[in-house]
């Protein structure tokens, strides 16, 4: 654990100096959680009370008629379990494929020498400028024309059109310029001498990627995992356009289920809480490796 904590003078002065830091950290913590606390608390209140409490500190306090009614209503309205499962599958597969595909590309772009690689990197980063919404419709039209090989009994059959599948929610988001860029930046901080040494020992490029560079890149992998996971978990425009079958829909589409003539805000808060908690748990599980793994990775040069 030889990380960066600032070495400080004496133990007593150190304790004293830490007090303002702690106060600041706690104050900030309040600032960051209060809207989420509002969401959580409201999820237990009936709508009429949420709005009665809105202008006062009561909005953050579990007071009044609390119940799980909103949660039971959520399950009546949305197949929440199914949606959660779909989102987990879609997000997880995209994350895994994305890590492999993007790190491979970044490896070739940052550690190997071949003509055109700088241009390609610029082109890949340039793709970030175009927001997804602006080409979503042409993409719908296009994925509906794409072919797919399907195992039909014992022989392969060629089918056309990707609508109403998991893959149409996964494959368009696997290659990701952000991820390539992040891996690229990270790989550059790993000394190239390691490659040279391995080459001398007869290692293949792929071997260097797999056995030297990737094992050193835990934090980059974790960052990319989160970076890929969050937008996948939150996507709703695309699934709505390409998935007609309710059984394949992800969680964020479910939010739309609550916006009827009368919006049920309490249920929205309950549903939001339900879909936020798994992500938070995931981050908690990840963050140790995410932030602390480098200490032992020996990227000291």
């Amino acid at each position: 654990m030889a990380t960066t904590p600032t070495p400080a003078p004496g133990p007593r002065r150190r304790t004293l100096r830490r007090i303002p830091g702690h106060l600041l950290r706690s104050a900030l913590a309040l600032l960051f959680v209060f809207p989420v606390v509002f969401m959580l608390i409201s999820s237990f209140k009936p709508d009429q009370q949420i709005f009665a409490d809105l202008g006062s500190i009561k909005a953050f306090l579990p007071v009044g008629q609390l119940s799980l009614d909103n949660y039971t209503a959520v399950f009546d309205r949305v197949p929440a379990g199914r949606f959660l499962l779909n989102s987990i599958v879609i997000s997880a597969v995209t994350v895994v494929l994305g890590i492999v595909v993007n790190s491979l590309a970044a490896f070739a772009l940052s550690r190997m020498r071949w003509p055109g690689r700088r241009l390609l990197l610029v082109l890949i980063i340039a793709t970030l400028i175009v927001p997804f919404e602006t080409f979503a419709l042409p993409l719908v039209w296009w994925v509906n024309k794409l072919p797919w090989l399907e195992l039909n009994g014992f022989h392969l059959a060629l089918t056309e059109g990707w609508l109403d599948t998991y893959r149409v929610q996964i494959l368009p988001f696997v290659a990701n310029a952000f991820s390539v860029f992040l891996f690229h930046q990270y790989f550059q901080s790993i000394p190239k001498e390691l490659d040279e040494a391995a080459r001398m020992d007869g290692a293949s490029w792929f071997g260097i990627y797999r056995r030297i560079v990737m094992p050193l890149s835990g934090p980059a992998v974790a960052t990319v995992a989160i970076l890929t996971f969050l937008p996948m978990w939150n996507s709703y425009l695309w699934p709505l356009m390409v998935v007609q079958d309710e059984n394949l829909r992800p969680v964020m589409v479910g939010i739309q289920y609550f916006f009827q003539l009368n919006v049920s805000w309490g249920q929205i808060m309950a549903y939001s809480t339900m879909i936020t908690v798994p992500v938070l748990a995931l981050f908690l599980a990840f963050q140790r490796s995410f932030i602390n793994s480098i200490a032992s990775s020996g990227v000291k040069g």
Partner: peptide
Amino acid sequence: IQAFPQGSYNDAVVAAASARKLP
């Protein structure tokens, strides 16, 4: 039956029409 949430129903219809997949 296939049901869609009201808020995005029109987007779903337009997307289906562009893919010639209207119900």
